[in-house]
Write a protein that binds this DNA or RNA. Sequence first.
RNA 1: GGUGAGGUGGCUGAGUGGUUGAAAGCAGCGCUUUGCUAAAGCGCCGUAGCCCAAAAGGCUACCGAGGGUUCGAAUCCCUCCCUCACCGCCA
Length: 422
Amino acid sequence: MLDIRLIRENPDFVRERLATRGGGDEAQIEEVLRVDAERRKTQTELQRLQSERNRLSKEIGGKKSRGEATDDLESSVHKIGEQIIDLNASANGLDGQQKDLLLEIPNLPHESVPIGKDPSANRVVRSWGEKPRLTEPADHVALGAKLKLFNLERAAKLSGADFICFTDAGAKLERALINFMIDLHTREHGYIEISPPFLVRRVCMIGTSQLPKFEADMYGLEENQLFLAPTAEVQLTNLHRDEILRVADLPKKFVAHTPCFRREAGAAGRETRGIIRVHQFDKVELVKITTPEKSYQELESLTIDAERVLQLLGLHYRVVELCTGDLGFGSAKTYDLEVWSPGQDAYLEVSSCSNFEDFQARRMQLRFKNRDGENRFCHTLNGSGVALPRLFVALIENFQQPDGSVRIPENLQPYFGASEIR
RNA sequence: GGUGAGGUGGCUGAGUGGUUGAAAGCAGCGCUUUGCUAAAGCGCCGUAGCCCAAAAGGCUACCGAGGGUUCGAAUCCCUCCCUCACCGCCA
């Protein structure tokens, strides 16, 4: 959520920055400003009347204690009370309207983000490793079938299209990857491991900005007013919702392994081959809660923490800085990690590391007390470290052997318990 | 699911209709005393919004949330949420 004062004081700046996203969101600014002006006007009048009521009520209290008559006063206060009820209703309505509008406006891109309207303007900032030399590589669907690592037909039997059921060595490989990643982030990168609930309240989904705008992409349990979290970003970032943290306790760094649930509405046919885009997948997620001063350096280190996973597994990848038009709704700046997939002959996004600045913190009233004793909104960041099905795809495709087996990278062997799958 | 007890400032905790934004304590900040530390004394110390060009200043709201009663609500009533305890059910 943007700061209404920023919009009020620098509307042109806000419009200009929003326009770089190319989503037409700048059009909403005029409406917000209109409601804001109306709201303040109403509030000022309301407060004037409330002040008057308080003054007269006090007078009544005084007179009563002296045994004097108060009938005239009481009836005039009663009249003011009726006006207050009306005005209060308008003020509340305008307040809600303003908030609803603000919740639908995306974050402003950071000034360092390249301007562009689609992924073609994204910037590759670095890459690591090299593509493996493979002659006619099999893709993960073929490899998975041959080695019986997962079974999509049977997953469909259970849950429908676009679900995964890992089997045998495949299930074990997934579990090995999870443990490998969590150990790495907790032991070497200083993250605290969290095992959160998977169902979350609406207010959390609003806090991290999945809602209200993207409700169609979420699975919800209507009766219970709960949602299946689409990413552990929701749980980890909301852990301290409505709190005022001590600056000495920052940054907070959390890692969690959770399933993630996404309806992927409207995504049919896009990147859906095999297990690349599914409705439920596991992910190891990293979240940081920090201060405005530190958040950009924390974004760099968060990205590097995620990259370590791919490096230790020996997978070629590149880091892409998203342009303004490709940025997620709440993000001010994002680096995607894209791992090489020989089977797709393309890079696959396995992590998206973002700094939300105070966008989410403002929505969830997540603050810290600075050294001057003032309450300030925290900055929040998150990134996958990393998403499992695509990591799985990259792993088996990159390390496939001419004889159809898959070599397990050395760093993973202690977790997997074998050096190959055949 | 049932019954009961609760939800007050960063924390603990008073407060059952009229200067209560809220006693007291802790924590925090400033000053004094002090060789240093500790201790003591004094003072300050909630959040959000609005008015004002700004500062100064003023006003309003906020005691889980939302409604209601009243001239006036932390205090009375209703609904909901959450926490705790016990019972039931249960991995």
